[in-house]
Design a protein around this nucleic acid. Sequence first.
DNA 1: GTGGGTTTTTGGTTCATACCAGATTTTTAA
DNA 2: TTAAAAATCTGGTATGAACCAAAAACCCAC
Lengths: 259, 259
Amino acid sequence: MVTITHDKTTKYSNKMSKNIYAYALVREAIAKNIIEKKLTGNLPSERELCATYEVARSTLRQALGQLENMGLIFRKNRSGWYVCPRKLKYDPMRHASFLQYTTEQGFQPSTVLLSKKQIKPCKEISESLHVDKNTSLTSIKRVRSVDGRAVVVEDLSFSNAHLPEIEKHDLSLSISILLKNTYKHHKVLYDISVESCCLFNPIAQHLNTYDGALGLKVTRIVRDQNGVAFEFDREYWRHDALMIENNAKLDVFIQHLKP
Amino acid sequence: MVTITHDKTTKYSNKMSKNIYAYALVREAIAKNIIEKKLTGNLPSERELCATYEVARSTLRQALGQLENMGLIFRKNRSGWYVCPRKLKYDPMRHASFLQYTTEQGFQPSTVLLSKKQIKPCKEISESLHVDKNTSLTSIKRVRSVDGRAVVVEDLSFSNAHLPEIEKHDLSLSISILLKNTYKHHKVLYDISVESCCLFNPIAQHLNTYDGALGLKVTRIVRDQNGVAFEFDREYWRHDALMIENNAKLDVFIQHLKP
DNA sequence: GTGGGTTTTTGGTTCATACCAGATTTTTAA
DNA sequence: TTAAAAATCTGGTATGAACCAAAAACCCAC
């Protein structure tokens, strides 16, 4: 049983006081308990929280929804609300494997290959990779988890011409290591885009979230040293699972700048 | 008066059919109208839409909320819902001014300086800039708009030691041009982080949105050629206003790689 | 015409209720 | 003992009603 600190004299639904809304008061009260670690793991049930804060369920759910947007809590379908684990720091520009940067940060990573097939590129991909609409590409879908929590669905498309027989490798492992070891692509370049998005089924289901949940979409075009694009990635992340980080590579730059 | 295509035989609130929910059907119907440009500018009022789709207002608002998360529509406080303009493409790594990259993309930019003061750094800033907690920094807040729509609130802190008399310049103009012209910082390096966040008052108010709205937080540490950090930025963006983009600088890299 | 007050319209907040669907736990029967 | 069935708990969906706050439209006196 979880005990929540709660000033019993505060009437959360009393909108007269200070022109502050009930949902905002409840939101702040729960946020405070989470930040001060008085609340960990799973939250009390919605109906319990309604009783605690003396608000209707829809008001409570408005507060919970905002805490979810803040990345403080998340839900498991029809099972309950949970305090979010810390975010994964992720540098889409860095040529590091998922395995590497997750373990560096103390997470237990895992990957499941959902599908592997030959596809014809959509307009966006054919334009990005400069290939004809009828060119066959190797396409894979994967779900990646940290500490048993699914955080990203990847949708990767590879140019067969550039990466011969790629479909014969174990594609549930690190692609960046495969590029390095098998195809000798030690230097690659990325075009990255990041934007806020909504996660819909079936992606939402793979991430154990709901249809319409908040996400971050990372798109990446991978090029070789000559600027030839050979890989097109779409990554759909749980919005609460990651923080994009890109650190200036001082050592490299300074080297170049020294006479 | 806006006319909406709508199959009158579809009962949106009939949950029996196909196990698809009313809010999802309404969401898809409105999304379709927006994508097909049958719906532009402002949407009909919520009560009208309720009548059109035969759902309760709370159900409709759930659909509108998801369309908002998708970046398809946005709201002006108590005035109505509007179809989102296209997103601004923004490369936080590029040393380009807001004026420059907005006009390049055909937007009309403007900036309002909200405040300018001397502050003592918080823990995060003092650690990032490697300055003592009692060092005075010049701090400014600005709101930047494109086509009259406020899209980002900036919170910038500068090291006075590194940028002497910075407080005497017009800080509603481009800082990157100021750095270039006045302080001769032609080459700078950035540490960037991007994450999903919630926008609360007063930031939400500056962006003409509501307390708890979705946002993207961009944090940036600016360093000189020697790696010395002298500026700390926090940017709070409307989540529907931007797309982070970073393009591989092929020309530069290829130059380096050529023998 | 026009400025200022009034009315109307709009979204924003909150409530109470009901029932559904899936996860979880408990009970029951083989 | 264990697997299947039932009960229970949880969040998810949906309704409709009421009232509030601010924006927008309107109107009228000057």
